[in-house]
């Protein structure tokens, strides 16, 4: 394998991984930015997305349907959870939210096991994306290329949504000064519900996209929640761009670390996180609080 082919292969590996991580980190950081809630159930929501994706593919017969149905269903459930449970806790200290989201992780995890059972389930990539492209005599799975493309489109879409739309403006304003937004006549509670739903939906979308690579399994939540926290800590809690940068850093460190120093690849990721914490305690693009 020549150098160019090697670098290309590794970049495809890393960017496709970054795309998956971005959905995880972005949802977590949005929720934190607006609500100051550390959502411990994020990994479990991501897993639930993968399982719902499995069922959508089965019942509706298409991966595209799964990409739409799973995030919407999970998003709506997220909104309901915010409405009926989280809303009662505002004004309490952060521990209340830790406990309640941790509880959600346990309950949701067991619910998934009751509904879908313990054995992992196969979610094959759609036929159109199951192929392989050869370049410089090296194979590139079409599905990974799709992940990169889809991730890029979604990242630009989210960015434009937050920067250019009125709703995006409200979200940013609420994250900076909720009292002022409220005083100006916007119901902050609605913004919060909506953002919690969007954050959960993004995690579920990540779960559906990951399923063809890892199958839908009960074990996927734990690794996901750890990755999501590392991304958000590196990028900065509450920063959208930070979660994108965090996802890229984590993916590249994992992919190149696994290649050159497989024994220490995991440690590398935490080392990067630690360095960021020492140099910029709020994360690369976050604000110290």
């Amino acid at each position: 394998m020549d150098t160019l082919a090697f670098i290309l292969t590794q970049c495809v590996n890393a960017f496709s991984q970054a795309a998956l991580l971005f959905f995880l980190g972005c949802g977590l950081t949005l929720i934190f930015g607006i609500m100051r809630i550390v959502n411990f159930a994020h990994g479990t929501i991501y897993m639930a997305g993968a399982y719902l994706g499995y069922t959508s593919v089965r019942w509706l017969g298409g991966f595209v349907a799964a990409l739409m149905v799973a995030p919407i269903v999970v998003g709506v459930l997220g909104v309901l959870f915010e409405l009926f449970i989280l809303r009662r806790l505002y004004g309490r200290d952060g521990n209340a939210f830790l406990m309640v989201t941790f509880g959600l992780a346990l309950v949701l995890g067991d619910a998934v096991q009751v509904v879908w059972g313990a054995p992992p389930l196969q979610v094959p990539p759609p036929a159109a994306l199951a192929g392989i492209a050869f370049f410089l005599d090296e194979p590139f799975p079409v599905y990974r290329l799709f992940l990169i493309g889809f991730g890029t489109v979604m990242a630009i879409g989210m960015w434009q949504f937050l920067e250019r739309t009125r709703l995006g403006l409200l979200i940013r304003a609420t994250s900076q000064n909720p009292d002022m937004v409220h005083a100006l006549g916007t119901d902050v509670r609605v913004v919060r519900s909506g953002v919690f739903g969007i954050g959960c939906g993004l995690a579920a979308l990540g779960g559906v996209l990951a399923a063809p690579l890892v199958t839908a399994s009960l074990g996927m939540s734990l690794a996901a929640v750890v990755d999501a926290f590392v991304i958000v800590i590196i990028g900065g809690m509450g920063s959208f761009l930070g979660s994108l940068i965090g996802a890229l850093i984590v993916a590249f460190v994992q992919v190149f670390g696994n290649y050159y120093l497989p024994e220490a690849a995991l440690a590398f990721m935490y080392l990067v996180m630690l360095t960021v914490l020492v140099v910029r305690p709020g994360g690369l693009l976050g604000k110290e609080e």
């Binding site: 394998m1 090697f6 590794q10 495809v12 990974r144 690579l213 994992q254 992919v255 696994n258 497989p262």
Partner: peptide, 20 residues
């Protein structure tokens, strides 16, 4: 030989290594 940490989700790099 190469060892992957328990709980590895992305095996692309290992696959690259094996192919090479």
């Amino acid at each position: 030989k190469v060892f992957s940490p328990s709980g590895t989700k992305d095996f692309s790099t290992y696959i690259t290594k094996i192919r090479q």
